[in-house]
Design a binder for these strands. Sequence first.
DNA 1: TACAGAGTTAGAGCGCGCTCTAAGTCAAGG
DNA 2: CCTTGACTTAGAGCGCGCTCTAACTCTGTA
Lengths: 158, 158
Amino acid sequence: MEREWTIQEAADEIGITPHTLRYYEKAGLLVPVSRNVGGHRRYSQREIDFLLFLTRLRSMGMPIQQVKKYAELARQGKDTTHERGQLLFNYRKEVCSRISELERNLKILDYKIGLYRQGWSATDGDDPCIRELRQLCTLMKNQEESIETEKDSEFTRR
Amino acid sequence: MEREWTIQEAADEIGITPHTLRYYEKAGLLVPVSRNVGGHRRYSQREIDFLLFLTRLRSMGMPIQQVKKYAELARQGKDTTHERGQLLFNYRKEVCSRISELERNLKILDYKIGLYRQGWSATDGDDPCIRELRQLCTLMKNQEESIETEKDSEFTRR
DNA sequence: TACAGAGTTAGAGCGCGCTCTAAGTCAAGG
DNA sequence: CCTTGACTTAGAGCGCGCTCTAACTCTGTA
């Protein structure tokens, strides 16, 4: 076996464009990939798998720089296992709080949609529950501001 | 009463900067706000409330253009009630699918974190469950691609 | 009245993450 | 061998959402 993929094949497999794949390489998300005699890139299963995971991180919203950090650690091998775990664990917390922020904001959206379903419009006068909505919005805003993620808290190798 | 807010006060209330507030006005998210004799902006409670809601939309990730669309409809008054409801309802669906995408990706993250907790590293050889992870990643990728939101489906004024 | 500090404008700049271009090289079927 | 299409590079461009600058004006307290 030892199958190899061209850049187009790899891109299709991963769900990005060849452009982006080269960009990721230049940006340091991957170590320069091997080439055939003519200088064309050839991707191994291992690289595809790694990229599949990196694109999951990206699609969760992890910034390129942080993905790069993770990739560099992974390249450095075993010594960085714990640090990588910590990095992913911290990011997990971020994702969780983003999810709950979305869910909190969704409540406001649902409240408004509810009003619209009843045919309400601002020109009827104030939103009947404007005070509640105002409170809700201000609350959300403040909760966002107060999210000071206490870092490195609970990830430990057991 | 009829309290008015300066741009700085309004910005503090809403949780953005005066710069951004002016930018929103220029971008058409608000109709040009009233001025005092010297030409300084003065915000009313009504405008603050409206902005509080718009910033909720923004922090859910709604693009400026779409927020603008909503704001324009709101300005046009009662006739657009249903359309505004529809707009918010469609966006609600988007937010929901983003949340579930995040949750699906979180599973992959948790899986990896689990491996790291056990002290695993890529240099030990392949991820012990690489086939599963690969499958999982590919699956996520495909689910993302196949989200073709059937628009305008279920919002109806009852 | 003076003066610090807050406000005004048009427009430039920036960080992010791609995305595309141009000009050239390689691969492979007929 | 020729041709077509995929690949290569360095670097420019872009869309988004702010964010800042410069040069100026207004406000309000001492």
